[in-house]
Amino acid sequence: MTAGQIAALIAAGAFVLLVLLLAIPLIKLGRTLDEATIAIRKTHEGSAPILDGANTTISHVNTQLRRVDGITVNARAVSGNVSALTSLFTATMGGPLVKTAAFSYGVSKAIKARRERKEAKGKK
């Protein structure tokens, strides 16, 4: 055996050792990828019922929103009617009520002033 052959044998052995050392992480990486694939598959299978439930929930929410929209339209109509009624009341009764209130206030002030004058004369 010559020195070249011995060197070739050592190089071949080192190459085999290198291949073995690299094979272990590659095998572990393959297992990790298999586990990741299984996890993704299970997640995909489990998400279908969740998405179906979400679609059902959204359908119910849309139904409720349509009902709320109807209620809002009716509330708008009622507030318009109340506004019209308030305007009508103000136009027909507001003026006389304000005049009556002002008159009664004036009368009470006049009576109070008269009483104060009488009391002031009585003390002198």
Rank of each mutant, 00 (worst) to 15 (best):
G70P: 01
I24R: 08
I24A: 12
L88Y: 04
F15A: 15
G46V: 09
V19K: 05
H44N: 14
A101E: 03
T100L: 15
I40F: 14
G53H: 02
V73W: 04
A102G: 02
G30Y: 06
N81H: 08
A110E: 06
L22Q: 11
A75L: 15
A77P: 05
V16C: 14
V16L: 12
V73E: 14
S108R: 07
R76T: 09
A101L: 13
L88H: 04
L9R: 05
I6C: 01
G46K: 01
V16W: 02
I40P: 00
G13C: 07
I58C: 05
D34G: 05
R115K: 13
R67D: 08
L26E: 11
D69Q: 14
L51R: 02
V16K: 12
L29K: 09
A120Q: 12
G106M: 02
K42I: 15
E45H: 14
Q5W: 03
G30T: 05
A8N: 11
N55I: 02
T86Y: 06
G80C: 03
V73F: 07
R31M: 07
T100Y: 14
V16Y: 01
V19W: 03
L51C: 02
T32C: 02
A101D: 03
A110R: 09
R66I: 06
S79L: 11
I111R: 10
A75G: 00
G46S: 09
R31A: 07
E116R: 08
S108V: 00
I10N: 10
L97H: 04
A120P: 04
T43G: 08
K42F: 10
N62F: 08
R66F: 04
A77L: 07
N81F: 06
R76P: 01
A23E: 10
K124G: 02
K123G: 04
S87I: 04
S87F: 08
L29G: 05
R31S: 13
V107C: 04
I10F: 04
G30F: 11
R115Q: 12
Q5P: 01
L51A: 13
G53P: 01
A113G: 05
F103H: 08
A7I: 10
K118F: 10
H44A: 12
I24N: 05
T72A: 14
V78E: 12
N55M: 06
A113W: 00
N55Y: 07
S104D: 03
K109H: 03
R117A: 15
H44K: 08
A54D: 00
L9E: 14
E116F: 00
R67S: 13
D69V: 06
G94P: 01
G4F: 10
A7H: 13
M93Q: 08
A84C: 01
G122S: 05
S47L: 10
A110Y: 10
A102M: 03
P96G: 01
T86L: 13
A91W: 06
I38Q: 09
L17W: 03
I40W: 01
S59C: 01
V61M: 14
D69E: 10
L21Q: 00
I6W: 13
S87W: 12
A11T: 09
S108N: 06
A84W: 04
L97A: 11
V78K: 14
V73D: 10
T63G: 06
R41C: 03
G95R: 00
S59L: 06
I27H: 09
A14N: 11
T100P: 00
E35N: 15
T86P: 02
L17E: 03
T100M: 12
